[in-house]
Amino acid sequence: MQKKSSFSTQGQRADIGELEIYRMLPNRYADAVGPFVFLDHIVPTIQTRINKEGTGAHPHRGIATLTYILNGEDEHFDSAGNYAMVHSGGVQWMNSGKGIIHDETLNYDSQTDSKVVHALQFWINLPSDIKAEKPAYLAIQGSDVPRKDLPEGKGWIKVIAGKFEDLRSVIPDYSEQFLYHIHLEAGAVFEIALAAELEAAAYLPEMPGIINGERFNAGDFIEFDRKEGTVELKNNEKKATDMLLFGGGPYQEPIFAEGPFVMNSKVDTAIAYRDFYNGEYGKIDYEKQRGQVK
């Protein structure tokens, strides 16, 4: 039996500098899908000026940030001393744990001829015991993201988080989670079965698509019911399209989200702010970190 869509919605503008951004999650219908509590879509843009200022150093606590760079290159700095430059198709993942300051700069990819920048950023809510751990970081280049071709040349699937068949992401699973990028050629169909306990949503970043027999528009965020069933993605367009499918087990603890912090109580949130203003998250040394990479 196919899962039914609970709702669909378009995002709200949340631009940063010259980046055009649509905030898809949270939205007026849902605050979370499985462990995912946030999704920003940096829409495809031709970049005419290099961004040298980044998005601005800012703190996080209680979440893991996951930036999936569809086109461009993303430079990461954080107060734990981590630095990396990840290119088109790659992923930046950071467990903020008990507190960290980070900054990211998205520019067009210096390794290609394309001037397009295009990315997605997710926040993954951490279980309360993980929120007290030390921060952690992974830089995953596009060639290291698990990928499998679909049968009969229908397209491919990338596993950004979680697992699919024999593919498994290197990103840690603190709870059940999945994030798939599914690329479908014209006329192709992809179907996946999901268990009853899983929450799931789909996102169509650039083109319309047919999901369980229902047509949705480009930019639509679609959440499904909680019943066991299948999700069928179909591309009826004349050219290839991309769809995101993500979710996981429902978060079992209270959620208190305020600004850059996602905690389990108002008291926890107040402590997160206190520790940040007391300087306990450290500082970023931009020149030192960039100079460590030859």
Rank of each mutant, 00 (worst) to 15 (best):
P208N: 06
E214Y: 12
I222K: 00
E223T: 10
E199I: 05
E197C: 05
I222P: 00
A196N: 01
R226W: 07
A218S: 09
A201P: 00
G209K: 08
A196E: 02
R215S: 12
G209Y: 11
A202M: 05
A218L: 06
I210M: 09
E206A: 15
F221E: 00
F216D: 04
D220I: 10
T230P: 08
G219W: 11
I210F: 05
E228P: 03
D220P: 02
D225C: 04
N217W: 11
E199Y: 06
M207K: 12
G229I: 14
F224T: 03
M207T: 12
G213Q: 11
L204I: 08
I210V: 15
V231K: 14
L198N: 01
L204F: 15
F216T: 07
N217F: 14
A218G: 07
G229K: 13
E199F: 04
V231E: 11
G229Y: 13
N217Q: 10
V231S: 13
A218I: 10
M207C: 06
I211Y: 06
P205H: 12
A200I: 11
P208F: 15
L198D: 02
E214I: 15
G209H: 04
F224Q: 00
Y203G: 05
G229P: 09
P208K: 13
E228Q: 14
E214T: 15
D225P: 01
F221Q: 01
A201T: 09
F221L: 04
A196Y: 00
T230A: 15
R226M: 06
G219A: 02
G219R: 02
R215D: 07
A218V: 08
G229F: 13
E228Y: 11
T230Q: 13
E206L: 14
Y203N: 04
K227V: 11
Y203R: 04
I222T: 02
A200E: 00
L198K: 03
D225V: 12
M207H: 09
I222S: 01
A218Y: 08
K227H: 12
